[in-house]
Amino acid sequence: MAHRLRPVELDFTLSAPVRLVFTAEVRADPAAVYRALAEDVEGWPGWFTAITSARPTRNGAGREVRLRGGTRFQETIMSTEPGERYAYRIDETNAPGMRAMLEEWRLTAAGSGTRVRWTMAVDGSAPLRLLMGLAKPAMGRAFRDAVRNLDRRLTSAAA
């Protein structure tokens, strides 16, 4: 059963009770990484294997995302800064215990590539907060694998 989450703003990435932050570097430039994140929403399952489907909604102002295991999200795009930042708030989910969630992807030039920083900011019940903390290593692996897959995808497309 889906439920509405509390709407939060971009500064929630600084104040959320649970903040998971991961970084990795890719060879692709920030503009290419940004396009994959913000403009090729339907391509996410091709590099982020936890995602089974993603599609833009509301004429690009939102997204609908489905994860392996059946979790679903209805999202609002909060920031689109080409080559720098892409962020979205989860408005509705079927994940139990969640009260608020925002994800932010920050991109910065790093040598001849891009440093990618993903922040997952969450508020929820005590059991959910505990679970998020315990899941941090697995989330980190999923992020690193996804970014590695994205890098391969972008560098092979450029070749």
Rank of each mutant, 00 (worst) to 15 (best):
A157N: 07
E104S: 14
R144W: 07
R35A: 15
R58C: 10
L37F: 12
L67K: 09
R115C: 08
E39H: 08
V122C: 05
A87R: 01
G69C: 03
G43M: 09
I77C: 12
L5N: 02
A28S: 14
T71H: 03
G83K: 03
N59P: 00
Q74Y: 04
A158W: 02
R106K: 13
G133W: 08
A142E: 13
G62E: 09
N59G: 13
P82I: 10
F143Y: 11
A158H: 10
A50W: 11
P82C: 10
D145N: 13
L37A: 07
D40N: 14
V41Y: 02
P17C: 05
D151W: 02
P17E: 11
A159P: 01
R58W: 11
L67Q: 10
L20G: 10
R152Q: 06
P7F: 08
A157I: 04
P127Y: 04
A54P: 11
G60Y: 07
P96L: 07
R129N: 09
L10T: 10
V147N: 01
E75N: 06
A138L: 14
A159F: 03
M139G: 02
L102V: 03
A110S: 15
L37Q: 07
A126C: 00
A157V: 06
D151R: 04
A50L: 12
D91P: 09
A100R: 03
T52E: 14
F48L: 08
E103K: 08
A2D: 01
L130Q: 10
I90D: 00
V8M: 01
